[in-house]
Design a protein around this nucleic acid. Structure first.
Length: 322
DNA sequence: AAGTCATGCAACCGCCTCATG
DNA sequence: TCATGAGGCGGTTGCATGACT
């Protein structure tokens, strides 16, 4: 037996909302608040499905909606978030106050897709079209290879990224924790708050690097150590700090540009996807942790260590809603 | 001016998640 | 543990409008 319908379809209006319907809905929610969408239409005197009311309110009538064109900064933020989250429009919308998931989804499909294609970037994979950069064929110990690279257009041909220094073998994924096997000199290249000299990236690892002879789990993450022969293993929660980047107010999520125009762009690649971000003159960093897609002020590293679980991940340690 | 096509976006549909009993 | 249902989400549709011929 199927689920009972959410409303009596034969008695509900469909299609565009009238001004009168909008007024009724707004007035009702102003008086009674949101919620109980199933019973709302009847209580508000609307011949609409509860879902339809909810959608109309969330996507159009809510007073905190930001109408109007998307800014260039919002574009870049959406692109960056999409490269990390995929079509998780609600999660992306959560990072853009005043924008709805539906709005962002439509905007993506009508504008940003084309914008990325014009840049030569595949909008779905965020990889450079016809790029020679590919994920390496997995080996027995390797799920995939990823490469963190900084494009030459920012580092002015001073990119020392080599095949060895910034290429990691992704061994395993446990929860939100990525386990990479690296070559030698692991500690030198990546430790908490240590700046990678070659890539000029802040790479922060939680917990500290493990090798096969370290048995104690002194992490504050949920990972369980297993040994993959031939690899050192780390939990890598990656925070890439832009040496000079946009200043982002993480408290209200608004990008404060103050007439700054991006002078350069920095391209980075994570897990085979390419992301391009504008680089401004003020300091800051972009945290790419799975559970905290936030811009950080002052180049600080991300403090969110909350393991991603189905429910707990919605709020990280720093109290930010995800 | 009329017809056709392309585009943008509001709205719908059906499935999924999760809280609750 | 399971069933149920409300709320939420992403994909898709269809209409209004503008551009083009």
């Amino acid at each position: 037996m199927g689920r009972s319908p959410c409303c009596e379809k034969e008695h509900t209006n469909k299609g565009a909302w009238t001004k009168e319907e909008d007024d009724r809905l707004v007035n009702y929610i102003k008086s009674h608040g949101e919620g109980c969408w199933r019973s709302l239409p009847k209580a508000a005197g609307l011949q609409r499905c509860g879902k339809s009311c909810r959608l109309r309110w969330i996507n159009y009538l809510r007073p905190d909606l930001k109408r109007g064109n998307f800014t260039e900064e919002e574009d870049e933020l959406i692109i960056n978030l999409h490269s990390l989250l995929g079509n998780k429009w609600s999660l992306i919308a959560a990072k853009l106050p005043g924008r709805t998931d539906n709005e962002i989804k439509n905007y993506w499909n009508t504008h940003i897709k084309r914008k990325l294609l014009s840049r030569g970037i595949d909008p779905q994979t965020h990889r450079v079209l016809n790029s020679s950069t590919t994920i390496a064929t997995p080996t027995a110990n390797t799920i995939a290879t990823t490469k963190i690279a900084v494009s030459n257009n920012y580092y002015n041909n001073d990119n020392k990224d080599s095949n060895n220094n910034n290429t990691f073998q992704l061994i395993n994924i446990r929860g939100s924790t990525l386990h990479f096997g690296l070559g030698s000199n692991l500690e030198h290249e990546f430790s908490t708050s240590t700046r990678s000299t070659d890539a000029k990236l802040y790479c922060t690892t939680f917990p500290t690097i493990r090798t096969s002879n370290i048995s104690e789990d002194h992490s504050n993450s949920s990972s369980v150590v297993t040994e993959e022969e031939g690899y050192k293993e780390i939990n890598l929660e990656l925070s890439i700090s832009l040496p000079t980047s946009s200043k982002i107010n993480s408290a209200n999520h608004e990008i404060i540009m103050k007439n700054q125009e991006p002078q350069k762009y920095m391209t980075y690649q994570v897990f085979g996807t390419t992301t391009r971000v504008p680089v401004f003159t003020k300091g800051g960093s972009v945290c790419l942790c799975h559970n905290n897609l936030e811009f950080q002020n002052n180049g600080s590293q991300c403090n969110c260590y909350t393991p991603m679980t189905t429910t707990a991940a919605k709020v990280c340690n720093s109290g930010k809603l995800l």
